[in-house]
Amino acid sequence: MQTTLTVNGHTRSVDHDPRTTLLDALRDSLRLTGTKKGCDHGQCGACTVLVNGRRINACLTLAAMHDGDEITTIEGLGEPGALSPLQQAFVSCDGYQCGFCTSGQIMSATGMLEELARGDPSHASPDLAQVSADDAEIAERMSGNLCRCAAYPFIREAISLGAKGERS
């Protein structure tokens, strides 16, 4: 079947099996391999992309369900030589080791910072009406992104640093 996606601002048409997930369409059909498959079951977060601005697991959705949707992948944020502030912060804070979960961490952080800016609460919010951006909040909100190298403290340092850069 045929599905049209707008990926990183470009309209792309994909011919695919109805079973093809958004993740496999991005990786194998569109050859945007920055988005990773770590578990294929929504249990690790390595496949996080933005769909119409919201972060989701690309492995747990069918490509067919996203006809006409706007997808942002890690490739859409920046590239070597022109990294986004958040990407640059991951480099300077060593917010990764093996790098396999990194695209997902950065895409998730991108979506998460929007949610935080909107004032959406989290499980760690002491007051549901008044949300802050402290480390406990960011840690809870990023918990859908596992990192087996366990770069967590440095990922969150990078998110805090990158968020400042994205705002300025």
């Binding site: 972060r55 979506g111 909100r141």
Partner: peptide, 16 residues
Amino acid sequence: LSRALLSGASGQIRNK
């Protein structure tokens, strides 16, 4: 209800 929802799954899954 907010609390229960927010204790489940992850930000990405709750968005879906």
